[in-house]
Every structure is written in C-alpha cells, then in structure tokens.
Design a protein around this nucleic acid. Structure first.
Lengths: 207, 207, 207, 207
DNA sequence: GATGAATGAGCATTCATTCAT
DNA sequence: CATGAATGAATGCTCATTCAT
C-alpha cells in the first residue's frame, strides 16, 4: 500500500503482498476465479484472511491486481521482442515466438489471463479493454513500416488480431488445457508462418 | 439424464423441459455457468425448482445436456456444410463459413460452448473431449482426399485445429464478447483465406 | 409468502414463519437488532438458516416485519381503547392507560418498538414515519370534539405528542429497562393526570 | 482509562485524544455505537488505529469516556441553571430550559447520550446508573424547599423523572431525530408548563 | 506516543439440493 | 410431474484488537 515497488514485476518476491498474489495465481489457475475461495488462497499463502483483505479489499481486487500485472508483463515482452526487426516476416515471427515463449514460461499466468470470462466488474472490464487496445496499438506501430512498404495487406482493423494471433492463441489455449502435447517451441515455426501467410501481400497469392 | 430424447435438436419447443433448457442457456450465456443460479433459471423459465431438478438432476446436468446438444449441433452443421466439395480450397472455405454462420445464428449457444472452463466434472469433461476428438476426426476425413492428392500440407496433428480454426475461433470469441463490430459474414472470406494459406501445399511458398 | 393470514396478529401461531418471528422478537428485545445474530434466532426458533432467509430475505426483513406488525398492533389498541368516550379527560386517561397496558402486556415488543435507532433502511424508515403519522392523526381525530368544545388547548402541532405521551413514554422506557420498579398500573393515574393537566384549557391555569 | 484528565470538559481541544473523541462523537451520533467502526473514527480523526487504542483501550472505552463526560456536562449545566431560584415554578422552568438548551447546543452529544441502548457492558452500565441516580438526587435537592413548603406534590419516587422531564425528553428525542421542526426555544415554555402542572400541589386541581 | 500490517473469530447471506404434499 | 418450503454447508467479508517497528 505504501511500498515503493508498487510496479512489482512478476518475479518472485517475499513480502506478504507478493506471496498472496502468487498463491492467488496458483489457485485461480487451477480452479478459475469463481471456484477459488479465499480460504484456498489463505492456505496456500499462509496469510490470514484479514491480511489478504487488508491488501486487496475484495477477491476481485486480487484478480484485478493479478490481471493488471499479467497483462502488462505479457504485452511488454511481446513488444520488446518484436522491436527493431529488419523485415516484416521476422517481426511477425518474433511476435508469435514471444507469445508462445511467454505462455510457456508462465503457464499459470497465461491460463489466468486467457481464460477470464467477465469475472471482473464491468467498470474494470472497461479499463482492461482500453489498456489492451493501447497495447495492441503499440504493437501495431511496429508493423507500420511494413505496411507503408507494401509488404503487408491492408484489411479491416478487426481482422488483424485474429489473423495474427489466432492460430497461436488457439494453440496456446489447447496446450494450456492439456489437450495438446506438441512442444510449443516446435509449433512456433508453423504458427508464425500461418500468421505471415495470412498477412503478406502476395501478388501471386492464391486468391 | 433420464430421458430418451437426448438428441433433441435446438429448435424451439414448448414442453417444460425445453423451456427450462432455453432459459438455462440464456442465463449461462449471460453470467457463465458458475455465476448462474437455479433461481435465475427458475425465474426465466417460470418452472419450479422441483421441476427443474426432476428433469435434470443437478445444475451440472443442465449444463451437460446443453453442452451435449450444442456440441453435436455445431459439428453436424460444420460437417454437413463441408461435404462433397470439389476441391480443398472450397472445403476449407465452407468449413470456416459454417463455423461463422453457426456462431452468428446461435450466439448464446456459441458463447456457452466456447467459453467453458472446466465447469463440468472431470468425468464428463473426458466424455466431451472424446466426442470432440471423434467429431474432429470425421471432419478431418473430409480433407483426406486433398491430403492424398498433395494439395494440403502434412503437419503434426496438434497443429491442424489451430491453423484451420484459430483465426475464425479468435474472431468468434471477440465478436461474441462484443469487442469486435465487423460483420462476421464479411470476415468469413479473409478468415477462410488465412486457413487455406496456412494449410496449402505451395511449392513456391515463402518458407 | 402465500399464506392467507398475512395480517397475522401477534397472537402465538405455530407455522414456521410465526415461530421465527417470535424467536426474533425475543432475541431483538434482549440484545437489540444489531447485536442479535441470525444464529441466535435460528437456535431459538429451531428453524434452519435457509428457512429464515426463505421467509424474510434479510435480517432487516425480519425486523421490518416485526416492526410493522408491532406498530399496527400498538396503535390499533390505543385507538380502540380511546374511542367513544364521554369527555376529554376520560379519553386522555384511557389513551395513557392503553399505552401502559400495551407496554405491560407486551414488554418485548415494546422494548423492540421503542428503542429502535435507525436500525432500518432509510427507505423503510420513511414508510414507518408515514404510517406513524397516519396513526397519530387518527388518534388525534378522537380528540377533535373536545378541541371544538374548547376543553383542550390549541398548541403547535409538534407539541401534542410530547405533552400527551411524554410522561407515559418516559415512564415506559425506564420500566422496560428495569430502572423503575413501580407498578405501571399504579403509575397510570398520575401519568394520565399529567397529560390531562398539560392539555386542559384552564381559564384559571397558572400561566 | 490511563489518563489523569478524565474530567476534560467538552470544549474543543486539539490534542490527539480530544480530536479522536470529537471524531468518535460525530460518528456515534450518525450511525450509533454498534454501527460505528474504528475505521470510521480513524478516518474522521486522521489518527492511526494504534493511536486510538493507545488512548482508549477498546471501542467501548471511547464510548465510555464520551458518555462519562457527556453525562457530567449535562447534569452540571442542568443543576447550575436551576440553582438559587425564588420559587418552585421558576426552578422547574429553568430545569426544562436548561435541558432544551443543552440538547440544542450539543445535539450530537445529546443524540449519543439519549439513544444508547445497552451499548455498554453491564458493569459500566451499573456505574452509569449510579452516577445518574446521584445526579438526579442532587437535582432533587434543589426542589426540596418547595416540597417542604408544600408547593409540590409528594408522589412515588419513580414518577418524578417521567413527570418532570418526560415531555421535554420526548420532545428532544423527536427533535434530534428530525421528526419535529418546531423551534425548541419556543417549545420550552409549554414543556416546562406541563412539568409544572403535573407537579404543582393545586388544591383546586382538576382531579 | 504513533503507525499500520496482521490476526482470526464471527457474521450475514447464498445456493444447490431434498422431499413432503 | 409439479411445487416450494426447508436444509445447512460454504463463502466473502468485517472489524475489534494486537504488536513489532
């Protein structure tokens, strides 16, 4: 509440607040937000109910804190990885690789982030959407040069996310749920190829 | 659970059981399974609690019935639409079109089907996976000829679903949640093109 | 909820709802609304928590039901007793006697009714005030003839309740809290005399 | 509880302790003792929880300190005002006037003092009763001369408080709760007249 | 004296489910 | 088949109080 490191990244920390957050993530990832109980979190974190509420106010407050951190972490890594590439194909490949890499290295957080279903208040939902939209815009800026250069196709805005991230996203979901065994690293090549092919401006394209 | 007509389609009916099912679908779609209460369903359906339990046994029983029906309906339409096509491209296009068409015409059911998160018991979960796998296999059989013919690429099995359905699936999710405005019919062309490009065996492909 | 006898008086009944109400009254009277717990009421009533909530919705709902019944019972008896008297003095005497009589015969209800302190929602508070005002107006109508006849003094409206009921009210409070031992029946004579003297139009009065 | 200056009057002070007390009074007056939380008091007083507990030990300790001070202040003013009067009527009038004056000038304290409902421990309750009884006895001593002189009626002891203070007390309660608009100053005359008439030894009295 | 993180018993309320009518 | 009163375990949350700094 008055700690300096309020922008705490997701690296393991040991102050009570972080411990609670880590426990909550584990529980949320396992059972989903609704199914998770404060008691679950209390047991895992070894904190008291009062302490949990002292720091987060409500159960949704915990989810919100986690969500906020997670989202920023995800997008930050995505954008960092795709910056300063030499051509469109490489940019797209690295985006997908960053996505898969992030999901693979933080599966709990990914499960939590990508499976949410209006578990947060409408007000907060709005804030999240805005932030996601901003992040996506930043990511899009990275592709700007290749659009200007004519390497990438101009499409209705709503299509970019599905075409670019759809395959990787679908793969991630299935992998996170255990329905898929294939090593994500191996999948990266094909998933980024799919993204590339659906966005590349190919004069000899089959359509 | 105790009925013969488990394969009841999703056409509107007026017997008590169907009314309850329809009410449940609406409620589940709005609030999610966990958040929905029997009381919500009771109010929407104008049935009594006792009656609901008489027909479905448990809350999960309602979800299961709905899920079962929904899943079959979805796959049936998908496969029906993609049968007997003349070439690979058309087959794939029609699959995507069928998906988008189904989602568009039954948004509540789609929201319910595609947002589930282990809301059903592990046992039932298993059954569903099996059934989904079977359905997917049937769908895959439709593509068999084009594989044999060399028109489609041979890839690790786990990749087909993400590549084929990923973009459309991602688009659907966002459209169902209201984050996307673009008319799904218009999106179909690009979404199926994306699927086609990532699966087509193109000797001059960019990889 | 769908019983016919919704206007149940406060006579002992045996249906679950009445049993709960009686138990709640006892508990509220003993510890006050805030201090009373649902668990207290449950134990006394031998009902289940669910049953209590099924009938009353909230703890405040129980208090409200009790309050509503109690208020009506009190005023009804007050007015019934003071009707059709031959002169002002008798009317006033019987009003006070009725008040004391009611308090004496239903001490729990009286304690509950007269000690409330915004324990009910503002909305309900408003309704109660209106009803009390209406009842008081009805009571006032009983005194009309004696006003017209010149036997009673004309005063600012806000003074009538304090002058008429003040002494009896104060006596009741103290008696109910156990601070006073004096038999209420014996007190009645003096308390009604006080009310009479402060309202009578005495040409030779000391003011 | 651990201070010397327990007889601190109620004049505004600025040391931490007084600030807390003032904040507590405001909160208690608004929501009642039970409903008020330490957190409410902390916010209003800008003190820390620890500081509040350092000074008062328990929540009830705050209420007790307030109650103690308030009670003494009330009775002190009452008795001061009614001392040295020339006759019974004037004494009684000034008592009522002092009561109304006090209530009017310190409404929060009055609300707190007069609405309490066993919010304090039985032990403390006993102490308060004793003190109130003592104070009342002191007040009664002021009326002694007029009793001896035969101006005032001899009645059962338990009746004096209701007859003397009842109307004013009832008026105060209603005024404090906002149910009455009439200016208390204007009401004083009638309220004291009522007290006078019910106590005066009138050989030609109407009974 | 002051601070606020931590504690945990306790509470109102919810809700799936049962069952007598 | 239908009804809805009854059940009680479970849950999110509150709040007075303690105590290390």
């Amino acid at each position: 509440m008055r700690q300096i490191d309020d922008t705490a990244d997701l690296a393991p920390q040991t102050d009570r607040k972080s411990v609670i957050l880590a426990a909550a993530l584990a529980v949320f990832s396992e059972k989903g937000i609704e199914e998770a109980t404060i008691e679950d979190i209390r047991q895992r974190s070894q904190a008291s109910v009062g302490s949990i509420y002292h720091h987060f106010g409500t159960k949704e407050g915990i989810a919100a804190a986690l969500f906020s951190q997670g989202l920023d972490d995800y997008w930050t890594q995505l954008i960092a990885r795709a910056q300063g590439k030499l051509n469109a194909e490489e940019t797209i490949h690295d985006l997908i690789a960053a996505h898969i890499g992030w999901v693979t290295s933080k599966p709990d957080l990914a499960r939590f982030l990508f499976s949410r279903r209006q578990a947060v208040s409408p007000a907060y939902e709005q804030a999240i959407r805005q932030r996601t939209a901003d992040h996506f815009k930043a990511l899009f800026a990275l592709l700007k040069p290749w659009f200007k250069q004519g390497a990438l196709r101009r499409l209705p805005a709503d299509l970019y996310a599905p075409l670019l991230m759809g395959p990787a996203q679908e793969f991630s979901r299935q992998w996170l749920s255990g329905r898929i065994q294939l090593d994500p690293r191996i999948a990266t090549k094909e998933l980024s190829l799919a993204a590339w092919r659906s966005l590349v401006n190919d004069p000899n394209g089959s359509t």
